[in-house]
């Protein structure tokens, strides 16, 4: 690990940014297609688009934010992975707890 890694791309065309941008657009359009033009069930659609969103977030972190470029890259990646775990626990846990016994409610 050195903090000079990114300098390899110095004074070159910003390919990684361009590829990241292209991939983000493709993933967004793919999510749209899955959502509106595919025949999958609602559940399958949501699983696929959430996975597509996670991939796109990873592209931002790696290709735009260069999360792995510095000497502290391991701490940075660890922090973000831990935060993602916390986020998943909060979101999934909240939905699970709050939807308990929902079928008994008059909505």
């Amino acid at each position: 690990m050195s903090n000079n890694e990114q300098t390899n791309s110095h004074s070159h065309f910003p390919w990684s940014h361009l590829i990241g941008f292209g991939l983000s657009i493709v993933l967004t359009l793919l999510a749209l297609w899955v959502g509106f033009a595919s025949d999958f069930s609602f559940r399958t659609i949501m699983i696929i688009v959430v996975i597509l969103a996670l991939i796109q977030a990873a592209i931002q972190l790696l290709m735009f934010m260069h999360i792995t470029e510095s000497d502290s890259s391991r701490i940075q990646v660890g922090t973000i992975l831990y935060a993602v775990f916390i986020a998943a626990a909060i979101v999934a846990g909240t939905i699970w707890v709050m939807s308990f016994g929902m079928h008994n409610m008059n909505m």
Binding site: I75, Q76, T79, I80, A83, I86, A87, I90, V91
Partner: peptide, 22 residues
């Protein structure tokens, strides 16, 4: 490095709002 730690906290903040919304 400190800003990356802050972004971790921001992820937690937004996750509570997403949970509430959902």
């Amino acid at each position: 490095l400190g800003f990356w730690v802050f972004l971790g906290a921001e992820i937690a903040l937004f996750s509570t709002l997403f949970a509430t919304y959902l």
